[in-house]
Nucleic acid binder design. Structure first.
Lengths: 292, 292
DNA sequence: AGCTTTTCCGTATGTGCTACGGCTTTTATT
DNA sequence: AATAAAAGCCGTAGCACATACGGAAAAGCT
C-alpha cells in the first residue's frame, strides 16, 4: 500500500544514464510482501502484455494451457477470498487445474506475480479523463479518486499488504497517476507543489482506504468480530490500564461523545482528513505558503 | 504501519460485555507481517512486563539464560540491520547464543514477538507531557509528533512492514495516543472531531514517514540506488511508455521544474501535506464544517 | 537425597518457493 | 514421412522457516 510518491518517481527520472547494467537486479528487499525482483525487463513486458502482442508470431511448440492473465486473475480472486497468505503457487495452480511448476512458464516467480496483481487491481479504477463522466472541479476529481480508491481497497484488501516503494511500472498505476496529476496540474500551484500535493493526497487516501478495508475484512477472515477481539482483551482494562497515567484517554472515554461504531469513526477520520487536506491545498493556491 | 485509527479503538470500546470467551483467539489473519495471535492475555502480560514484576516471586527452577527483553531487542536490532525477513527465530536465537527453541520459553511465538517489537519501538518516542519540554501550541505539538515519528521510522524502517489493524495494546502505542489526543483535545473541536483529526494526523504522518524511511533504506539494503533501479527499467521509457496516452505526466516531465532528488520531493510532499492538514483542522475549529 | 519446577534445546514435521531436468505437444525442415 | 526444433508441462528434490514434542539439565525445596 501507500503508493504515496509513485508520481514523484514517474516524473523525476528521465536520465537515460544507466549505471549498473543489471540484467539481473540485485535481490530486492522484501517488505510487507515481496514484489518485483528478477529481470525487470521481463516483468515490464508482462505488465504491458496488453500491448505488444507481437502479431507475426511464428507460434511453434506446444499450445499453452493457461495464460498470464488467467494466473493473475486466479491469484487475485484467491487473495480476495482468503487474503494474501493463501496465495501460494500451489493454490493458484490448483485453482487453474495445472501443476504448480507450470506457472513458472508464464510468470518468473511469485514476486513478479504480486506486481502483476497490484497493477491489475489499480487498473480497475474508473477515472474518466474526459468531461462527460469526469467531474468538474479539481476537488470533485480528487474526491472521485478517493471514492474509487476506497472501493478498490474494499474489493482487494490484500493491496494493503504489498509494499511499493519502487512499485511496478504498469498501466494501472500509470493511469492513476495521470488522472491525479491532471486534476491538480492546473489549479494554480507551481509544478513542485503539484507533485507535493498529489503525493500528499495519495498518501492520505491510500493509508485511510487501506486501513478501513483491512479493518472490515479482518472480521470476515478471522471470524472474530471487533467486539470479540476486545472481549478477549478485556483483562487489559481491568488489570493493566492505569487511568492516571493516561488522563486524556480516560477523559475522552468518560465523555463518550464519540460513540458510533469504530467503522464509523474510521470513516469520519477519513472524510474529515480529506476535507482538511483539500482545504489546505486550496489555501496554498490562494496564498503561496512558502512563497516559492 | 498505519496505526491510523488506533485511538479510535482505544476510546470507543469499553463495553465489558464479552462474547466469545476466546481463551484461544481465532487464528488471526496475517497481513503485511503477522502480529498477535495466540492467547491475548499472555501477550498483554508480556507487553506490560515492565509493571507487574511480581515482587515476591519464589524463583524456583533453572535460572533463565535470557529474558523477553533481550529477545525483543535482539530481534529489533536484527530488523534494523537487515529488515524484517531476516528476523527468523533461528537468527534471533543465534544472536543471543541460545538454541532456537529456547525462545519459545519466553515468547509464545513469532507473531507475539512482532507485537513486542512494535510496541517497544513506539515506546521510544520522546513526547513530553509537561510544559518545559513540551511545545506550546497544538500545531507545534503535532509537528513534534511528526518529527519524532519520522525519526522513529528511520531508525526502524521495518515498522512499516507490520500491520496493525487491531494493534498491540502496549505502553508504547498507548503513550503515543495519549500525547496526540491531549494535544488536540482542547483546541475547540467537538469530541468526535478530536478523534477524527487525530486519526487523520496519525494516518498521514505514519504513511509518509513510513514511506520515506523505507525509501531511504531500500538503497542500503538492496545495494541498489534509485538511479540504478531506474536504469534497469530504462527500456520502459524507450519501448513501452506512450506519451500521448499520458499527457500530464509527459507535460510535467517536460516542464521539469520539479527537479531535486526524489528524497527531496518526498519530504516536500510530507511537509506540504502536514501543513495543509493542520490548516484544515484549524479551519474546522473556526467554522465547524458539518456544524455538528 | 529425592522431588518439583523451570528452563534449555535436538529432532521431526509441515508448509512453501523454486531449480532441475525429463517428457509431451506442436510446428518447421528435409 | 521422418527428423529436428521449439515451447510448454510438471514430478522430484532441495532448502528455509515456524513450531510441536519430549527428554535432559539445572535450581530450589523438603
Amino acid at each position: 500500500m501507500c503508493y504515496g510518491f509513485y508520481l514523484t518517481y514517474l516524473i523525476r527520472e528521465k536520465e537515460p544514464g544507466a549505471l549498473s547494467r543489471a540484467g539481473e537486479d540485485a535481490v530486492r528487499f522484501m517488505a510487507l510482501s515481496d514484489s518485483g525482483r528478477g529481470d525487470p525487463r521481463q516483468t515490464l513486458r508482462l505488465l504491458w502484455r496488453g500491448l505488444a502482442e507481437k502479431p507475426g508470431k511464428p507460434a511453434r511448440g506446444r499450445k499453452p494451457r493457461i495464460t498470464a492473465d488467467q494466473i493473475v486473475s486466479a491469484a487475485v480472486s484467491l487473495a480476495d477470498r482468503e487474503r494474501l497468505p493463501a496465495v501460494t503457487m500451489e493454490g493458484v495452480a490448483a485453482a487453474l487445474g495445472v501443476g504448480t511448476m507450470s506457472l513458472y512458464t508464464h510468470v518468473p516467480g511469485k514476486a513478479e506475480l504480486m506486481d502483476l496483481m497490484v497493477d491489475a487491481a489499480w487498473g480497475e479504477l474508473d477515472l474518466p479523463a474526459e468531461p462527460p463522466a469526469r467531474p468538474e472541479g479539481w476537488r470533485e476529481q480528487v474526491q472521485l479518486y478517493a471514492r474509487e480508491t476506497l472501493a478498490l481497497y474494499r474489493r482487494h484488501p490484500w493491496l494493503r499488504e504489498i509494499t511499493t516503494v519502487r512499485p511496478p511500472l504498469g498501466p494501472g498505476l500509470l493511469g492513476r497517476q495521470e488522472y491525479l496529476l491532471s486534476s491538480l496540474a492546473d489549479i494554480g500551484l507551481p509544478a513542485r507543489q503539484v507533485t507535493a500535493s498529489a503525493g500528499a493526497v495519495v498518501a492520505f487516501v491510500d493509508a485511510t482506504a487501506g486501513f478501513e478495508a483491512e479493518h472490515q475484512h479482518a472480521h470476515e477472515v478471522t471470524g472474530q468480530t471487533e467486539a470479540e477481539w476486545w472481549a478477549a482483551r478485556q483483562s487489559f482494562w481491568e488489570d493493566l490500564f492505569d487511568p492516571p497515567s493516561y488522563p486524556t484517554i480516560t477523559r475522552l472515554w468518560a465523555a463518550d461523545g464519540l460513540a458510533g461504531s469504530t467503522a464509523e469513526s474510521v470513516a469520519e477520520a477519513r472524510e474529515f482528513g480529506l476535507r482538511a487536506l483539500l482545504d489546505g491545498i486550496e489555501a496554498a493556491v490562494r496564498t503561496p505558503p512558502t512563497g516559492r
